[in-house]
Amino acid sequence: MAAFFSPFISKPDTVAQIMFRVMLALLPGIALYVWYFGPAILVSIALASITALATEAAMLKLRDRPVAPFLKDNSALLTGWLLALSIPPLAPWWLIVVGTAFCIVVAKHLYGGLGNNPFNPAMIGFAVLIVSFPVPMTHWLTPHGLGQIELSFLEQLRYIFIGSLPPGVTLDAITMATPLDTLKTHLHLDEPVKQIFDMPIYGRLAGQGSEMVSWGFLAGGLYLIAARIISWHIPVAYLGALFATAGLFHLADPAHYVTPLFHWFSGAAMLGAFFILTDPVTGPTTNKGKLIFAAGAGLLTYLIRAFGGFPDGTAFATLLMNICVPLIVLYTQPKVFGKKSGGER
């Protein structure tokens, strides 16, 4: 009786369901990914899932927490998926395994497990990988129809697991840098934007194929907002800030700064806006705070992309803004019912 107190009813929502729905919303993007880049991504996702579940279970055991309810909450799976979607699919198997394990063990459980980690685990994993293994992290698959040679799925598997390519094929022949990376390299060579965009890897708005994947994530994200799983604040503020900064630079100097739409549909912008920055655990809890947090991340993303050393900025922007979350939340406490001047303290 002691544990049975009002309210005696509750909404059937569970953490597991929320996480599951978020994963569901990733599916359109993943489907387009497979369509344009081949099924290698599915291998990464599978590897990430297995690693995530295994390390999560092991950590729960070690920390003496009940395994079953936490394993079923899907949060580890989601972390694995997000990491898998942020790194090149044609990477050696150990890359994704090490990255996911790092996410779960260090970024999540060493900070106290579900609900207690200050940094987005998937982005920590990404940051560690890109700092530690920069070379494999730049070998992205070329979209269908662009590469000189295309590997069959079996050949891809062989590469992922034993690192052997078919005779005569070099890694460079089947992979490329991301459109963002390519843009940066060529801008450094003082080529005008127009000319760069004539390269075959660029599509209508941004990179061939990758822009379509972004559309997929956008669709999934809109579903999340419609289903009230995430609020509109973070995506709108993030994309808004990214658009605004990119737009300003583009207006000032169109020859050297690409259109804001290019930024929207490149790299992890869409994934970040709807799936990464919206991670509730590491984001702010107040609506105003969400706007500030996401706008900050949008600005940082642009700055890192345009002026930083890394090709994409979403991950580092997220982590940097994660640091500010407690402060943002403290200063954006909403007004309590019946109190005129904010949360008095």
Binding site: I18, G115, P280, F337
Partner: peptide
């Protein structure tokens, strides 16, 4: 009960506008 995931659903429904 699982740990709080800071999803803010509680804050969205609180009639006293608390967190």
């Amino acid at each position: 009960a699982l740990p709080c995931i800071r999803c803010t659903r509680c804050a969205q429904v609180c009639p006293a506008e608390l967190q």
